[in-house]
């Protein structure tokens, strides 16, 4: 359902990324070379390519976590397009708060914060009132089969799969216009994988622009509207 009338949410133009390792005598590791990549609202684009090719790097560039060496990263935020490569930290934080959701492979947890609050936090940051945010968190945790007795515990001691589900719940708590998903189903069983697939499709149907890395071909099949092969923009090492 790539409707050409839907707005372009992500628009990368001529983006290159190279790492310079000063500790290794300034050796330069090019990763991406002149990437042009656009995603419209209502699309779910799966990044494909061999591991180490730069899929995660591309995601991190779109999230503003990495700085690109050249090029521009346009993000539609509150009806204007902002170039992340030139935006101030304050603007990037505002974009992340309202526009850009990111589900990473690993949950970075704050000690002592209970699961329910971890999940509700993105909504709280948007100014949603506490009761409503917690209600939404409950629904998501229940859908992802995180046992209710664990909701009041900090997720630090949870298993990998449990942490991943908390992470997914957190990523889907706020209805972000753009969602970046880095292996959201990696350590999940079949039932939870299906739930995540359903969540992704629901998000796309409400008009989110989604970019994801899905190693599981069945999941990719079930959610992606198209693929983007990173091999074509991989920098020659």
């Amino acid at each position: 359902m790539t409707d050409p009338t839907f707005p372009t949410m992500i628009d990368l133009a001529g983006v290159s990324k190279a790492f310079t390792l000063h500790a290794q005598g300034g050796v330069r590791l090019p990763v991406l070379d002149r990437v042009d990549f656009a995603v419209r609202a209502g699309e779910c684009v799966a990044l494909v390519g061999p591991s180490g090719a730069g899929k995660s790097t591309l995601m991190r560039l779109v999230y503003g976590n990495y700085r690109c060496t050249t090029g521009s990263i346009g993000i539609r935020h509150d009806d204007e397009v902002i170039d992340l490569a030139a935006a101030s930290p304050r603007t990037i934080l505002a974009i992340r708060r309202r526009t850009l959701g990111y589900v990473s492979q690993f949950l970075r947890v704050v000690p002592r914060v209970p699961t329910l609050e971890v999940v509700a936090e993105p909504l709280r940051m948007l100014g949603v009132d506490k009761a409503e945010a917690v209600d939404r968190a409950r629904i998501l945790l229940a859908r992802l089969r995180v046992p209710e007795r664990m909701w009041s515990l900090p997720p630090a001691t949870f298993s990998g799969g449990e942490q991943q589900r908390v992470n997914v719940a957190r990523g889907f708590a706020a209805d972000y216009p753009i969602l970046l998903l880095d292996e959201p189903t990696a350590s999940l069983d079949a039932a939870n994988r299906d739930t995540v697939v359903a969540l992704i499709n629901e998000a796309r149907e409400r008009g989110a622009a989604i970019v994801g890395i899905f190693h599981d071909a069945a999941v990719r099949e079930a959610v992606a509207t198209r693929t983007f092969d990173i091999e074509g923009v991989r920098a020659a090492a």
């Binding site: 310079t20 991190r60 990495y66 934080l93």
Partner: peptide, 12 residues
């Protein structure tokens, strides 16, 4: 810069 940018993709 942004905290996670500086820590995850340090330039200097």
């Amino acid at each position: 810069g942004l905290t996670d940018q500086v820590l995850d993709d340090p330039q200097h």
